[in-house]
Design a protein around this nucleic acid. Structure first.
Lengths: 152, 152
DNA sequence: GTGATTAATAGAAAAATTTTCAATTATGGT
DNA sequence: ACCATAATTGAAAATTTTTCTATTAATCAC
């Protein structure tokens, strides 16, 4: 399968705004509506596009308090790891969770309403998960950039 | 303006899949198509929904190497801060950048092809920005969770 | 290069969805 | 209870997506 320059441009446009019509895209790409349509279907079929979503304004829905949490496990037995990852993934305050290199095992991106809600989250949810050794929280003072667009 | 339970459910659905038709949504919400339509327009108008985007599979487009970079500035004079933030935001490898509390000033989420590309990014782009004191990189070993959905 | 085969594109028709509209129902304030 | 406003509904109109057939372009073997 070919993934050419036009596909890349198309993906860029769709990552910026997926509500554009195929006609608008066809103008930008100098293609027919059907050609655009078929290319998009191909990108969906082949898994380049994993989905289409609405992005929500954190401030408007009162979830503007963001914290990055480092987590260290007490042990790294497979069972513990699996269990921790499963439980963490089930928490809706945790938007992202990565197993990372360095002093800590995991880095979590957490969003809640405010510091009070964060404390609540830590005490009632995160630290109730078994096998957590220590945590370290970094509070977001300002969001300088936040994009979902993968550029080429 | 009222932001009720139905709106929250609607936002959740649209955050999961924005390509659902209003008819599908109207079934899930037990509303008419027009009622769904008007609620969505209201959520867009009032800024709850900031946009609609396609999500791209990092692996398929060869940008699966993710790194979190801590950055410390040498000084924190307003000019330096502004300049750094502006330049960092312009780098398409940097998907996110946050001013955070703690030992470092900033946390950057960077995606590139591989370690070679990362080195290239560090040497040619990030560390060429003025006033950077030190950096510390944490490599993502595994992505446990990655969601764009803000839950209620 | 030629011809054959396949993939990509185009334009038009059909199907589905969004958007508008007029009318009805529900809601909140006085 | 009444008025004014907002939300909901169903149907029509407008737009968009999707399908279909034909044409063009690219690929490969010879």
């Amino acid at each position: 399968m070919v993934f050419d320059t036009i596909d890349k441009k198309l993906l860029e446009y769709l990552q910026e705004d997926s509500k554009q019509t195929n006609k608008e895209l066809s103008n930008k790409l100098n293609l027919s509506v059907t050609a655009v349509y078929e290319r998009i279907k191909k990108l969906e079929r082949e898994g380049f596009i994993s989905g289409y979503v609405a992005l929500v304004n954190k401030v408007k829905v009162d979830k503007a308090f963001m914290v990055f949490c480092h987590v260290k496990l007490v042990q790294h037995a497979q069972d513990y790891v699996i269990k921790f990852e499963k439980e963490v993934a089930s928490l809706n305050e945790v938007l992202e969770c990565y197993h990372i290199s360095g002093d800590y095992d995991y880095l979590l991106k957490v969003i809640v309403k405010d510091m009070v809600a964060f404390r609540e989250f830590m005490v009632k949810k995160l630290t109730t998960i078994d096998h957590i050794g220590s945590t370290h929280s970094m509070f977001v003072i300002n969001e300088v950039k936040h994009s979902t667009v993968i550029g080429f």
